[in-house]
């Protein structure tokens, strides 16, 4: 006997004929600063949702704390705006019990690379099937200009006014160093087509899709990606049929390097910036164990549970 409606794989009635448009995903007007890169990411995400026709009620955005973590409030999907650094465990919990839902995580560099770094590394290793977007602007913006782990060395902030003391952490190298990492990509907020294509590839990946998005903060790190924004020569696109290809960029972005995302060693070498900003899919492997799939359990009816429970209790009977 199966319990009616017990399986969480089945949702409530969904209007099969309904076609979702970008407007269906938009909610409150985003309140980020004018010129903030988060606006571009939001638009790209809405485009991906539309392309994939993900029903809003079956889509969950989980975030932590920071400017970028306001993300779920600006979407008309389900959202969970939690606490600093802890978006990934919450998303893991959703994913573990609800394989029918599409789960996205939005984190800032403080969230992901500092207070929540432990969760980040372990999420890469667990490899649950979800999309994790790191909106990396190299600064703590919401708390007004403190040094982040990805702040460039020398960048002055309110906590390190004479300049950031340490070289920045490289999220790509960290991610590519984690056993069982299955998808690592980098894109930039100033290239909407590339941003869209990369998030789309991430959403189609089976496993934990980690995307670092280089994101401009018009308030505190205005100069951070300024050079690359103005000079396409400073950008190198990693191109491959298994990665992302964005033909409309070909005319301007001449630095293109063929890179097979199956090649982990090459990915690790390319993760070192060498004076260039490399955008594209560094690594992709869908043959690795996906945690929520390995932990999937049979759905049991109440009657089945009681029979099993009584059998277990028999073992402890006096």
């Amino acid at each position: 006997m199966t319990e009616p409606g017990c399986s969480l794989l089945s949702c409530g009635p969904v209007d099969e004929d309904r076609e979702w448009t970008m407007d269906d995903y938009a909610s409150a007007l985003a309140r980020w600063c004018p010129g903030c890169g988060d606006h571009a990411v939001l638009t790209a995400v809405e485009r991906v949702l539309e392309t994939e026709q993900l029903p809003p009620e079956q889509t969950v955005f989980v975030s932590g704390i920071g400017c970028s973590s306001r993300f779920p409030h600006y979407l008309r999907t389900y959202g969970f705006h939690g606490i600093h650094g802890r978006a990934l465990p919450v998303a893991m919990g959703v994913r573990l019990r609800r394989p029918d839902l599409h789960v996205f995580v939005v984190m800032g560099d403080g969230d992901c690379c500092s207070i929540g770094a432990g969760h980040w590394i372990h999420a890469m290793r667990y490899n649950p099937d979800l999309v994790a977007l790191l909106l990396d602007n190299g600064v703590y913006g919401l708390t007004k200009n403190q040094t982040s782990p990805t702040s460039p060395k020398g960048k002055a902030s309110n906590t390190q006014p004479r300049g950031a003391l340490l070289p920045p952490l490289n999220p790509l190298s960290v991610a590519l160093g984690v056993t069982n990492a299955s998808f690592v990509a980098q894109t930039g907020d100033w290239l909407p087509a590339h941003l869209y294509a990369t998030i789309l590839a991430a959403s189609r990946h089976r496993g934990f899709a980690f995307v670092r998005i280089l994101q401009r903060c018009p308030q505190y790190t205005t100069e951070l990606f300024e050079g690359a924004v103005r000079d396409p020569g400073l950008v190198e696109l990693l191109v491959h049929p298994d990665g992302v290809t964005v033909p409309e960029l070909d005319r301007i972005y001449k630095n293109q390097r063929p890179h097979d995302p199956a090649d982990l060693d090459a990915a690790r070498r390319l993760a070192e910036p060498e004076g260039k900003i490399r955008l594209g899919v560094f690594y992709r492997n869908e043959s690795l164990p996906v945690y929520d799939e390995t932990r999937r359990t049979p759905s049991r009816s109440a009657a089945e549970k009681l029979t099993l429970l009584n059998a277990e209790l028999d073992r402890y009977a006096v």
Binding site: G82, P89, V90, G93, V94, R95, L96, R295
Partner: peptide
Amino acid sequence: FGGVVHQAEDEIAAIGVALGASFA
């Protein structure tokens, strides 16, 4: 019984995963 024991990476993640599961 259709259940899962999830050994999380730390105590904080352990409750976070439980909360995420409760949410959903």
